[in-house]
Amino acid sequence: MAVPSGLGVIVDLAPVHDGARPAWLALGEDGTISRWDVATGRHEAVATTTVPEEPDHDPFDGRQLRRHLHASHDGRFAAVVNDYGRFGEVLDLRAGEITLDLENDGGHQETVPFSLAFGQSRGRCVVIHRTEWNRLDVSDARTGSLLTDRSLPEPPERGPLPEHYLDYFHGALYVSPDGKRILDDGWVWHPIGLPSVWNLDHWIGDNKWESEDGPSRVNVCDRAYYWNHAMTWIDSVRIAVEGLGDDDEEMLPGARIFDTTRTDEHGMAVELLAFEGPVGPFFSDGTRLFSGGASGLSIWDPEQGELLGTVPGISPTRHHASAGQFLELVEGVVRLWDAGRVGAGSMG
């Protein structure tokens, strides 16, 4: 199906779950944010972003600066950020106002997407966002108030590192389905990709240092020169990470499944299974693992590593979890597949 002409050129999409029908937020090339019902084609403009351009951006390893649209679960708040850049903003779509200007303060920002995710804490919507290369903060999405105020220590030129110092470049963020934990696809020097997990509730409510060295923080795995690749929560315990191997030059296509609530003898998350096959973006419906490679969408059993089925003709980059929709946008045409109708050929 074609994108409605009134939406213009779409640069990103984000699912929202604020009604009986599944809907998407669409970010236009001109900065307009619209609410779009893909099934009916109806759409309405709800806000306009003013995130500045970054003309001096120097790409790292081919990673071009790009606009990324995030949405809170209920669709009230949106965030627009410059992935692999420094700037962004949070918007209250109901009030039509910017509630928080974002800046990640540099520090190899060209190596990672802008760290940001929406969550819930004690009945309010919060936004988790990178404010320095080694610091994440949590702010109230409605008021912009900082909820994780703390002073990070500076490392000495020589000698042991101070308490709470985190030598870690934060990357893409993923909140668990139950909203209680967060997965961070970051890296450490020299460089090594080192995804980590910790408890979001504890961080906001009990320990402001939880994201640095809290007791719930667990490293998942380490891979030399390998981050910014597919990963997803399968449920609120298990995650799937793309790539078989521990070095980018020897990586094979496949998935590794980890239990993030248990650790092995090295203090890393327990690896449950590794199997060949899955490539591209990863998604999950709580039971199955979906991978969106160039040849189409594949469906996997993450407990046995078995291929359950394929959906040719669509390589989705977005997943509407509550609606079971997978979406690919290519040159103004939307390809949509409904996972609730497996075998029905329900591709738009």
Rank of each mutant, 00 (worst) to 15 (best):
H108Y: 15
S291R: 04
L336W: 15
V3Y: 01
S5A: 14
V112S: 10
L200H: 06
I314Y: 00
W187A: 15
V334H: 15
D184W: 11
L173Y: 11
V46L: 06
V197P: 02
F60K: 09
R67D: 10
L100P: 00
F283C: 00
L252C: 10
P177N: 09
V220C: 03
V220F: 01
E54P: 06
D285G: 06
G277E: 08
D74W: 04
G85Y: 08
F114W: 00
P302W: 05
R341E: 13
G343I: 01
G62F: 01
T148Y: 01
H68Y: 13
G19T: 03
R318I: 05
D246W: 11
L136A: 07
R130K: 11
A269Y: 08
H17E: 01
Y168T: 09
M347K: 14
E242C: 09
G292C: 06
L146N: 13
G254T: 05
D149V: 14
S298R: 12
I33W: 06
G19K: 04
P59R: 02
V237C: 11
S211Q: 13
R86Q: 15
L272G: 08
N134A: 10
A255C: 08
G186Y: 14
V127N: 05
G243C: 05
N219M: 07
P155H: 01
T310N: 07
D92A: 06
W337E: 14
P55E: 00
G343Q: 01
S145V: 15
A39E: 15
G8T: 04
I98R: 15
D137L: 03
P155S: 02
T148I: 05
E110H: 12
F326G: 07
G31M: 05
S298A: 11
E103T: 12
F87E: 14
H164L: 04
P15R: 00
M1L: 11
R66Y: 04
S121A: 12
G144S: 01
F169C: 14
P156D: 08
S5L: 10
W203S: 03
G292Y: 02
P281F: 02
D74T: 08
G19I: 00
M268V: 07
H320S: 00
L147F: 01
G193D: 02
F282Q: 02
M347I: 15
F326D: 00
A141E: 07
V112W: 08
S216W: 00
D56I: 06
Q64P: 04
V279D: 13
L252A: 12
A141Q: 08
H319A: 07
R288P: 02
W36M: 05
A240P: 06
A294W: 15
T49K: 05
A26N: 10
G296V: 05
D184P: 14
R67L: 14
D222H: 14
R21D: 13
G280R: 01
G6D: 09
G340T: 04
L200N: 06
T263D: 09
Y84A: 03
G313M: 11
S346I: 14
V11M: 04
L183R: 07
G205T: 15
L336F: 12
N134W: 13
I182C: 11
G88Y: 00
D30V: 03
I234M: 07
G85Q: 10
G313C: 09
L69H: 07
M251N: 02
M231Q: 09
G123L: 01
L289C: 01
